[in-house]
Design a protein around this nucleic acid. Structure first.
Length: 501
DNA sequence: ATGTGC
């Protein structure tokens, strides 16, 4: 299928497009002819580029005498769609500038993939019983992760490795493994958090160990925890190395930093507004950057600490989500192993000297250079691309393509805006729910449910926003990544059971 | 996307 091309885009070859702009910033999109691109998202990308002017004006107004702050490259992924100010599916490379909004509110939203010792036929044989267990564990008060204030603080400051060193943290008799430790240590190499002051309320909310109302929650929107099985192998050598043999059951968790990332981003915007030079108009696109230097040092440091705290929390939360799923599986099928293959961040930046790569709704796809010395040096970075509910997901291996800023898409991409899914579609949703095994929170319209604080409730309207027809077909999206030299498929995964936040 | 709408 060929979709009509946006007149502002120029096709470079079969799988790359260019967005010409008056700032001469290289803006490239990896998308084949079968991938629809939302015009509103292209509008938003052009509006983002006005930040090039903001950087120049801010530097002048503040007498900034360091090296020129600039946008050096933008990559838009094939799952591009309109976000709040900056498109979801944007990779932004800057020099001498940091843009909190280019990672978005949900700091370190990401994807964890674990390879279990279970086989699909065994899991399939008792899905009814497993479903009941998971509904209880995730939504009906069965989660109950107990952490002391010291443990909460350690999680924020030093991530999961820090938490594991702070007293006993067994949960339902399950302990993290060496593989967890290796994945979690590899995840956050950039800057440890110094202070958790922004989250003092959450840390200090109990005297002793108490059950946590936040950690272990899935979140909403497109977040989920899913059991899948390997249905097809596309790259036998890499699949074998990663344990992705046909019929193997895997666990996928997509979740973010819940309320913590929002608080971190809010802190950044408050600080940026407070420090904005008097007399300089605020930018039309609403995007406020940090420039380096002493003038902004204190504010930047406070933001980076809150950012790292939220990022650490998100990684830890995905670990707890996996642990919850492991607990359900162990209760139903007996002892098992579940080894994390990867935990990939979607919303994050990496300052590296003067250069910063920001990703908002995009996933790293490093090759040999980016993974050198690590466990994935041989095959490249695992790239996890989930399809919409009920559809296949893919695991690919990254090629570190500099054209893509070593980045790939983080999903199939929304086709219908959230707001446009409210009307109709109820019969289709019912049919979908009969066909696929989707474990959802309890119905929020039920007055008995709404009054109970120990259960999760959700609206049907939210579920409709995540219906399969609201998303693009994942096939052309994955083909674009492969043909565009970004990442190549290793294995295809089909859903067995989805726990939907 | 957010412990639950402007």
């Amino acid at each position: 299928m060929r979709t009509r091309q946006d007149h502002r885009l120029e096709r470079l070859d079969d799988h790359w497009l260019r967005l010409p702009n008056r700032w001469d910033v290289p803006v490239e999109i990896c998308a084949g002819p079968g991938v629809p691109l939302e015009p509103a998202a292209v509008d938003e990308a052009l509006s983002l580029l006005e930040t090039a002017d903001t950087l120049a004006r801010l530097a002048e107004a503040t007498g900034f005498d360091g090296p020129e702050p600039r946008i050096t490259r933008v990559v838009l992924t094939p799952d591009l769609h309109k976000g709040a100010g900056i498109p979801i599916g944007t990779v932004l490379e800057t020099e001498n500038a940091l843009l909190p909004q280019a990672v978005g509110n949900d700091v370190n939203c990401g994807m964890r993939l674990e390879v279990t010792s279970l086989r699909a036929d065994r899991v399939r044989s008792r899905l009814d019983r497993l479903e009941k267990r998971l509904r209880h564990l995730f939504f009906e008060g069965g989660r109950r992760v107990a952490l002391t204030p010291a443990q909460r603080e350690a999680l924020l400051r030093e991530g999961l490795p820090g938490l594991l060193l702070t007293g006993d943290t067994p949960w339902r008799g399950l302990q993290p493994t060496d593989a967890d430790d290796a994945v979690d240590r590899a995840h956050l190499p950039w800057f440890p958090a110094r202070t958790a002051e922004a989250f003092a309320d959450w840390i200090g909310s109990a005297g002793g160990a108490s059950y946590d109302s936040i950690i272990g929650g899935i979140g909403g929107g497109n977040h989920f925890v899913e059991l899948q099985y390997v249905s097809e192998v596309h790259d036998p050598a890499a699949a074998h190395a990663w344990g992705l043999t046909p019929g193997t059951v895997v666990l996928m968790a997509h979740s973010g930093s819940l309320s913590l990332g929002h608080q971190a981003n809010g802190t950044a915007l408050d600080l940026l507004r407070a420090g904005w030079p008097a007399g300089l108009p605020r930018p039309r696109n609403g995007i406020l950057p940090f420039l380096p230097g002493e003038r902004t040092e204190a504010a930047r440091r406070r933001y980076l600490d809150a950012f790292a705290n939220a990022a650490n929390f998100a990684l830890g939360n995905r670990f707890f989500l996996a642990l919850t799923m492991r607990a359900g599986l162990a209760a139903e099928y007996g002892e098992l192993t579940s080894r994390p293959l990867y935990d990939a961040p979607h919303n994050l930046f990496w300052p590296d000297g003067d250069r910063t790569v920001h990703r908002k709704g995009a996933t790293p796809a490093g090759g040999h250079a980016e993974t050198a010395g690590g466990p994935h040096a041989l095959w490249g970075e695992p790239v996890i691309v989930p399809g919409s509910m009920g559809a296949s997901s893919f695991v690919l291996r990254g090629h570190g393509n500099p054209r893509s800023l070593a980045s790939a898409c983080h999903g199939a991409g929304r086709r219908v805006p959230r707001g446009a899914t409210a009307r109709g579609g109820d019969a289709e949703l019912d049919a979908f729910l009969r066909e696929f095994r989707i474990v959802t929170p309890l119905d929020h319209r039920d007055p008995l449910v709404a009054r109970r604080s120990d259960v999760m409730a959700a609206w049907r309207r939210d579920l409709k926003q995540e219906a399969p027809w609201a998303y693009k077909d994942i096939g052309p999206v994955v083909s674009s990544l492969a043909a565009g030299g970004v990442a190549t498929p290793v294995a295809e995964l089909r859903p067995l059971l989805t726990v939907k936040g």
